[in-house]
Design a protein around this nucleic acid. Structure first.
Length: 485
RNA sequence: GGUCCCAUCGUCUAACGGUUAGGACAUCAGGUUUUCAACCUGGUAAUCCGGGUUCGAUUCCCGGUGGGAUCACCA
């Protein structure tokens, strides 16, 4: 009752080093779901403190990906907000101020060691089978020596000095407490010689300044977690809650990466995946609602998401399951909704009405919209090739086959152009004609399908006839009858 | 190698310390259909190993094994 309700603020903090795959976006998804579930705020922050690794267009692709998935930042580089700027390269002055504070409080120190010395040190350590670690040479520098070096313009970095207490405890919302020996912790760099902060500094400072309450990030950050805790401690700041998410693993084992076949999320759209399917699939990679429901919309995910449902073990990225989700969403979507994305996989220059019909009759056969291009060519061709070997039903003669086709043509001729627009009319007319003339479906419908599609596997002839239109349907039947003689 | 994390069907996962260990994907079989899909029904398939604690461990503790992450002036 007397507890003040604090607004939940989560963030997604990618670095612009290229196109992100599903791993990064899953972190964004969870952060977003958690914030939205509690009417909180979801922030996008760009961690561009490494100019060398930054790739042009990355921020755009992050925005494109989020938009496609339906994740909308409340604050960010484009949205603005009262805690901006939201790109770290624009916050350099803030970090300098906090570095000075650490220096003054002896939680950090200048280091003038040349890269060559550090390399040598590392080599010597690994040769001695010891973990690589800075030897704190510059920690022994006197204030005068430091002053002198600075005055001489020597290049320097600022390193974090680990706490003097022998142990340090971290707390993760998923994994609980972990005890660390401070002697095992390296005095890593906080401020690089180019004046840019490293991740460790910028991340901690920004999470504090932006009033982040919950940090969702990958498990790969666990080893540096104690350093971040120590930094918060050095500043005397209250820690946000941390949730280190299980990794997404590739099928071959190991962390999912571009190298191991991870597809950039923004490319998945052009491979025929539906965003709803990707969201649903992603959500279940490391989380579950503890019910048997498998299909969730974004709104349902927001409603059901909780940290308790998160899993600790890494999850293998299974394309089969993604494809199943995708197929499910394709089968259940109206053609209208699929139209725009599906057009990419169909030949241009035809009417939306035709495209929609084609989507309608083919969608149950798709696991990805991209498959449309391989299976629909028969619908667009002007002169369909008929293989007379597959045209007859079972052992029927060419003559009987021609008769059967003629029967279909006559029955279909009775359907007016307007009635043709309703698929059921075509089916009903043909089936009734077959019944009243005391015939069986197979001998009539099989050759009809082949006449209309040139294939042995296809949607039903009624559907194809509907999509083709009356004139084209009749033309194809006539052509097939000719092929019989 | 040091440190840390993790461990249920092939895969994603469920199971107040007491269940015939459940669901989904994949797979297999059958049904439906003019074909292929879709759809429906059913089957095969898992608690890493060894110790404890307990009347009773998938579940709690310890050890082992296995997998993973991380050890940059990258994030």
């Amino acid at each position: 009752m007397n507890e003040i309700k604090i607004q939940i603020r989560t963030r997604f903090a990618p670095s612009p080093t290229g196109k992100q795959h599903i791993g990064g976006f899953r972190t964004a998804l969870y952060s977003y779901l958690y914030a939205k579930k509690q009417n909180g705020v979801f922030i996008l922050r760009i961690e561009d403190t490494d100019q060398a690794r930054s790739v042009k267009g990355s921020v755009e692709s992050i925005y494109d990906g989020l938009k496609w998935l339906g994740i909308h930042p409340d604050e960010g580089p484009r949205e603005g907000g009262e805690y901006g700027p939201y790109s770290q390269s624009e916050r350099l002055d803030m970090y300098k101020k906090f570095v000075q504070e650490l220096l003054d409080g002896k939680h950090a120190y200048y280091c003038f060691c040349a890269p060559e010395r550090l390399t040598e040190l590392k080599q010597a350590q690994s040769a001695a089978a010891k973990p690589p670690k800075y030897d704190q040479k510059c920690l022994k520098l006197t204030p005068d020596e430091i002053k002198e070096k600075l005055k001489a313009g020597e290049k320097y970095v600022v390193r974090q000095k680990m706490p003097s207490e022998p142990t340090l405890t971290t707390f993760d919302e998923l994994r609980g407490k972990t005890l660390w020996q401070t002697k095992d912790l390296d005095d890593h760099v906080l401020l690089k010689s180019d004046g840019f902060p490293t991740y460790h500094l910028a991340n901690v400072v920004d999470d504090h300044l932006m009033k982040i309450t919950h940090v969702f990030r990958g498990e790969e950050w666990l080893p540096s977690f104690p350093k971040h805790v120590a930094l918060h401690g050095a500043f005397g700041w209250k820690m946000p809650k941390f949730i280190h998410l299980p990794l997404i693993l590739s099928k071959e084992g190991g962390k999912l990466s571009k190298r191991k076949g991870a597809v950039p999320l923004v490319d998945m759209q052009h491979q025929g995946f539906l965003p709803e399917a990707v969201v649903n699939f992603m959500a279940f990679l490391g989380w579950n609602p503890k019910t048997e429901q498998e299909i969730f919309s974004m709104d349902q995910l927001i409603e059901k998401f909780s940290i308790k449902g998160l899993n600790k073990a890494g999850a293998i990225y299974d394309t089969e399951k993604l494809l199943w989700y995708n197929a499910h969403y394709i089968h259940h979507a109206p053609a209208e909704k699929l139209l725009q994305q599906a057009k990419e996989f169909l030949p241009g220059g035809f009417s939306d009405d035709l495209y929609k019909k084609i989507i309608t009759i083919e969608k149950s056969r798709l696991t990805a919209l991209s498959e449309l291009s391989e299976i629909t060519d028969y619908l667009f061709t002007k002169k369909l090739k008929i293989d007379t070997k597959i045209l007859p039903w079972k052992e029927n003669t060419p003559d009987a086959t021609a008769q059967a086709l003629k029967f279909s043509a006559d029955a279909l001729a009775k359907i007016g152009e307007k009635d043709w627009e309703k698929q059921e009319n075509i089916e009903k007319t043909l089936k009734t004609a077959i019944q009243t003339s005391n015939q069986k479906n197979g001998p009539i419908l099989w050759p009809l399908r082949v006449a209309l599609t040139g294939k042995t596997q296809s949607p039903s002839p009624f559907e194809v006839a509907w999509a083709l239109g009356k004139e084209e349907t009749q033309n194809r039947i006539v052509a097939a009858i000719k092929a019989c003689s």
